[in-house]
Nucleic acid binder design. Structure first.
Lengths: 285, 285
DNA sequence: CTGCCTTTGAATAGGTTCATTCACGAAGGG
DNA sequence: CCCTTCGTGAATGAACCTATTCAAAGGCAG
């Protein structure tokens, strides 16, 4: 992983240079800030070896190599960012903010900055949802797509997922039915613009005694656990890369919370989908 | 936009320092690589003003400020990256690669690198799909979620979108029906693992004379325009941030290709959803 | 107009970075 | 056994970066 973008095409590398390449590929994102001395230290080689490495790759010197590495980490190029490009930049930044919140560490150290956002309780939510049975999931309107993805993955590792992508009485009925069936939790996706129906459903779920995990873009919705991640709003329509990442992290947490069940279900799924020839030959998901 | 993460809380800034802050907020992502001299040049102030700016913000010096700025651009912290974190790093990198492909510029300048990937024909696809009527969209299994999102947005700006998220004869029938109704194009989402049904449907669409835009993660599928973006495969399940971004770019291109219709439909939608009270009060999408 | 304060940039000194040079040691062939 | 070739790291000097000093310019009260 962490490929160097084919930078080392057909170049023959000496042992020390291979060590540099190894370090680069494993720590690419901090390497772009390192000086040649620092990189040499961490790779365990001498500083001239770093310079020689850069030259061997066809660069004029180490600064040029470092500059060429930058687009591999944050996809900037010299080109003027167009609308689409800056939208993607924004999504990259959204994912970056999400990532730093997951660390628990504040993004900014110095300064007399304001209070950091509360940490995301993904692990806790994953454990709760993994134990929930049945597991209702809903997402209306623009959130239907993400709810569908969540539902698809959740079904692969959970025995009883009930997906709702349409509102109205069907959703409220469905919530009541799952509650009667023993549900304790509900998972909702509520991205802007916030449908009144979604809020109503969250309040109704509370009345039913269901606890609510909500994937959204800002705190403040009626929920017991809020997993918020910023949406990209630079284009005509919102882009949901960061909420999608939160959803993936949540599914991962659910899988972690019930490892044996997850493994058994995935293996079973693998076998039966192979037999039925559902997918083209290739690696499992 | 491009906020500085509340770094300038209650600090009083002199005119020259405001110019620095302005430049930083607008070019944050390149600023983190600039020396104090370079930043001073671009902000139109003297180099000491940059140092004083950093000190005024509570940092020990300019290097400390620059270091604190880094997490704002790429959300790295000192913390060891866990599984989730490195998955998000991977998605950030995927978006970066996508971004550099959109520029048309190769991500890496020097080196004797291999052939760059072909550019993404998003604009062309957007124009074709905007003119298509009716517009069939399909995505099966794990691709159903992204197809649903695409369908939701496309419907807001296109008069006749037909969404298919289930395979089988229903899909093939549906393709034949839209073809009889005058469709010229079909938009498909085919992410791994590739359902045999999806490939079959693409081949059938070809037989019907439909041209095919496919959002996927690698070239090689039967398609007339392939929009490929890498998926993140570090977790139990694949993550689709980059294909989602491609989808958003495609919708944007469709909107651009028919600006009048887009504006009219969005305004109409805005009015009617307001009247019906569908959404909580807030800004339009 | 004078004195005081703030702000700013030129000049400078001290530290760091990087490419080059040179010497040492290991591997391989005669 | 010697010699060549190659890779490596210590040492070096030029270029660069940053913080500090200092003087000039502008605003403002008296």
């Amino acid at each position: 992983m962490g490929g160097l973008g084919g930078l080392l095409d057909g170049v023959r590398l000496s042992p020390a240079q291979r060590r540099i390449a190894l370090y680069l590929s494993e720590h690419l994102d901090e390497a772009i800030f390192l000086s040649s001395v620092e990189l040499a230290e961490r790779a365990g080689v001498s500083q001239p070896s770093v310079t020689r490495f850069a030259v061997a790759l066809g660069f004029a010197g180490y600064p040029e190599l470092r500059q060429a590495l930058r687009p591999l980490v944050l996809g900037r190029t010299a080109g003027e960012p167009g609308l689409i490009e800056s939208a993607i930049d924004g999504e990259i930044r959204n994912l970056g903010l999400l990532r730093s919140r997951l660390d628990g560490a504040p993004a900014v150290e110095a300064g007399h900055g304001q209070a950091p956002p509360p940490p995301l309780r993904i692990k806790e939510a994953g454990e709760a949802l993994a134990a929930a049975d049945p597991l209702p999931i809903f997402g209306l309107r623009v959130s239907a797509g993400l709810a569908t993805t969540l539902g698809y993955y959740a079904r692969l590792i959970h025995p009883d997922v009930r997906l709702f992508t349409h509102g109205g009485s069907e959703l409220l009925d469905g919530l009541r039915i799952v509650q009667r069936a023993g549900a304790q939790w509900v998972l909702a996706v509520v991205l802007p613009r916030y449908p009144a129906e979604s809020i109503q459903a969250l309040e109704y779920a509370d009345k039913l005694g269901l606890r609510r995990v909500v994937i959204t873009d800002r705190p403040g919705l009626p929920a017991d656990i809020t997993l918020d991640a910023p949406v990209g709003d630079r284009l005509v329509f919102d882009s949901h890369a960061a909420p999608l990442a939160v959803a993936m992290a949540l599914v991962e947490a659910m899988a972690d919370a019930a490892p044996l069940r997850t493994q058994a279900r995935l293996e079973d799924y693998e076998r039966s989908s192979d037999e039925a020839g559902i997918f083209l030959p290739g690696e499992p998901p």
